[in-house]
Amino acid sequence: MLPVDGIPTPEDIMAKMPPPERLARGPVVMVECFQQIPCDPCTHACPRQAILPMKDINEIPRVDYEKCNGCGQCISVCPGLALFVVDLTYSEEEALVKLPYEFLPLPAEGQVVAGLNRAGEEVCPARVVKVVATEKMDKTAVIWLAVPKNMAMEVRHLKVKPRGTTVICRCEDVTLEEIEHLIKVEGVRTLEEIKRLKRCGMGPCQGRTCLPLIAREIYRLCGTEPDSLAWPTYRPPVIPLKLGVLAGGGSDDAQA
């Protein structure tokens, strides 16, 4: 319960949910502000006046959901970091959650982070769709997260997972955690896909160091035998040459 442990109850959340018809039509704001406190910046933040003006600054904010288009501009203004945008129509399987974030490092677009619920527990992987951090937002970034649809009302924070220290690909600095994630969460099954997504095997070593390790992970996690995998082709030069050696035909020493 909020006043006891800081976690809103399912009833608290229900009371803040936009109407189902509105949710079904696309992105919309969710104002998770539960208490009468002297605070009103949200009511001045929306360009469409969807967060209604207050007569008394101690009122709990109210929303005209028909006016809100889910743009998310209000999010970075709220000192309580209590404003979110939820889009249940984002795709077949995924919903989009826009949330405020004031920590470093900022995640990168495309990166997969851990989605946290209101109790701070990791509930699912979440893909960063967009990071909005303009000058005007004064260091309160808004992160757009794609999450499994059933997690739209759960994910309210994120954790950038450390990339780990077990390095699989030395050329591109790809860690075991990242490879595991691709296989376990993203459903990747082939060396070719991993090469395309993470550039493993495209660096100077041509995959000599990483591909056998990756093949072993694929075997460990999905049982595919390494010899039944399609191995990428090798192109010359098989050893990195100094720049200009091929073009000019000079010797190594002359170039140095």
Partner: peptide, 22 residues
């Protein structure tokens, strides 16, 4: 037995993983 801070503040440390024991 209850948190004295505004609940929005409590909610924001809580979802960052900090337990609050009243």
């Amino acid at each position: 037995p209850v948190i004295g801070a505004y609940w929005v503040h409590a909610a924001k440390v809580r979802r960052a993983g900090v337990p609050i024991y009243t």
